[in-house]
Design a protein around this nucleic acid. Sequence first.
DNA 1: CTTAGACCTTCCTGTCATTGGAAGGTCAAG
DNA 2: CTTGACCTTCCAATGACAGGAAGGTCTAAG
Lengths: 148, 148
Amino acid sequence: MNIGKAADASGVSAKMIRYYESIGLIPAAHRTASGYRDYTDDDVHVLQFIRRARDLGFAVEHIGELLALWRDQGRASADVKRIALNHVQVLERKIAELQGMVATLRTLAERCHGDDRPDCPILADLDAPAPSCPECHPAPARRRFGKP
Amino acid sequence: MNIGKAADASGVSAKMIRYYESIGLIPAAHRTASGYRDYTDDDVHVLQFIRRARDLGFAVEHIGELLALWRDQGRASADVKRIALNHVQVLERKIAELQGMVATLRTLAERCHGDDRPDCPILADLDAPAPSCPECHPAPARRRFGKP
DNA sequence: CTTAGACCTTCCTGTCATTGGAAGGTCAAG
DNA sequence: CTTGACCTTCCAATGACAGGAAGGTCTAAG
């Protein structure tokens, strides 16, 4: 099976398959005489595993760990559970951060007329955040959600 | 005031101040005779505005819009409200996505012994997600949270 | 058999917000 | 004058991709 078929079958784009190979997440694929990458059903299976883990928000780094455990028949399920629960914590921290932002923005938007007048509490707050409104000013988020 | 003081006063790193200048988010700073950037309190004020907006999760692109509105005395508050509420929607979509992931992982982790035995429903699900467990299989998240 | 065009290959670039570092100039205190 | 803390510019890297150029290969139709 060539890379295009493998991409369709696994839901991982051909670009990404080559990328995962380049960073060592998956071993180099077999090649046909003409140099085309050639995939087996098992290879596609691995790619599906990766895609599913990505959909669950695992970083590629952690997917590598999960793959190793998956391949290791003697692994302890505790290891897997630890990785999963650790990921849950990371996700929940992120959720809390986002919820703080939403709360602030909703509060500000509620106080905004939303008409043609120039007054706008949203801009006013961005300008000089009112210290008397703790709901508007959650703990400063040092790291943003761009880096999982 | 040099860039270091402006950075301390605004909470935006010197690196980022130069970056914001380079992408045109802020105008080029005045320079001293020796070429050092020189900032006024007003400049710092703008930087604080930017930092606050970043803390609220606005993309730099949107901060540019907000800055333009902030500077525009004749702006309509409706414009600001629209941007803010639009951002709320984006954030809430992201939150729902993350919550779906957490729910799946929690469910899987609950079913995992977490001992030395190799059996692990987490890996088993990544392997071949059970179609009979809708809770485990939320709507596929196409875009991940890496790009706000 | 030839040809079109759909696929494959590698390699390079850009994204976004940010951090890091190197090489070199400037400033203030001792 | 020296020290070291600052400033300057420029270049590279991060993660997880997407896009594209240049060139080779495969397949089906004519």
